[in-house]
Nucleic acid binder design. Structure first.
Lengths: 187, 187
DNA sequence: ATATTGATTGACTAATCACTCTATATACAG
DNA sequence: CTGTATATAGAGTGATTAGTCAATCAATAT
């Protein structure tokens, strides 16, 4: 599956830069070093590629983040670390993170089945449920907490990509944002 | 400028539903009740229409919100009211709010000149500067505060549109979110 | 009356693009 | 070997679409 991987990589780079509309499938194939026909051998339609790429990235993030959700540790610690790791992933995989947002505000997002979305957010939800059960988080709906947490990640990501700064400053902003969001959501 | 207004309205409805790519200019013209040629009489290119629509909406929001930035009142009050009014505008103008997000994560956004963006966010920045000067807000950069505030608005908007609820529940969520974000950012 | 300007139309075009099709190559099972 | 399935190539196609253009129409000025 070497070629498929190349197609994913090329598609991500091009979609992130030019958008779905701005990148012809022919260009993706070219950039990936495969023929037009090969692309459509692996993905029946352009839409299928868009969704498959979205799911691939989501699974990557999910796997990367779920490693540290140790239930032995103090909730505050796990919570903050999750937030911080999310942001490091976002800045290190800027294209992918941006692509996810693109899909979210596009008509393609409706093509992602609800159960797939549920699966992709399961570990986060479980952590929030744990926090609620322990009385560590303010009593609010899981969805609301999840959404506020996510949007704070998006916000800080946006700030970091829009404003140049040193690695040290970046680290400090991320740490501060983690403290802020914890302060906002903790019981 | 009756026709131009109709074009704006049709474009917004179609872009919000089908995305930029999914809506041909011919469809916009048709829906607006004007001819193909007329659309290109008012907007030289499709891209120009996309940007013009974006700026129009931004100015609408800006005007709607800047009305209440009374410097006589207590900062906390003005700050929270701004947040709350932003959210009411967002849910009442869901298409427009969604469209803004679409533009933000599209290649078109780079076509908006930096000084136009500055002008569109001026009143918000001024309010934040006032809060910092009064010592009402935590000492952080204006940009960071602005971004965190905006992303909280986006987050709550997303939550409200994704989860059906009564008007009363909605009001409560908005009020609670205002308290939360104030609690997070106040000194 | 006449000229000038801008608004409006809709048929037309040149280009693009998603996707197909046929042909060839490769792998590998019996 | 032979047969079958899968991978790859790349030219080709039919449909779509952004944008043009030449022709009217309306309004206002001269």
């Amino acid at each position: 599956m070497e070629k498929q991987e190349q197609i994913y990589r090329a598609a991500l780079a091009l979609f992130a830069q030019y958008g779905f509309h701005g990148t012809p499938t022919s260009r993706i194939a070219q950039e990936a070093g495969v023929s037009n026909g090969t692309l459509f051998h692996y993905f029946k339609t352009k839409e299928e590629l868009i969704i498959a790429l979205y799911n691939k990235i989501k699974n990557d993030i999910s796997q990367y983040l779920s490693a540290d959700m140790n239930p032995e540790e103090k909730f505050e610690l796990v919570f903050k670390r999750l937030f911080i790791k999310s942001l490091y992933w976002a800045v290190d995989n800027s294209q992918a993170f941006f692509y996810i947002q693109q899909v979210h505000v596009s008509p393609h997002y409706e093509q992602v089945p609800a159960d797939v979305i549920m699966e992709q957010t399961r570990s986060h939800r479980q952590l929030i449920e744990r926090g609620l059960a322990e009385g560590a988080l303010k009593p609010m709906s899981v969805e609301l907490i999840y959404t506020l947490l996510s949007s704070q990640v998006f916000g800080v990501y946006q700030f970091l990509t829009a404003n140049e700064q040193t690695e040290a400053d970046q680290k400090q902003v991320i740490q501060q944002a983690a403290d802020l969001v914890w302060h906002m959501l903790k019981a």
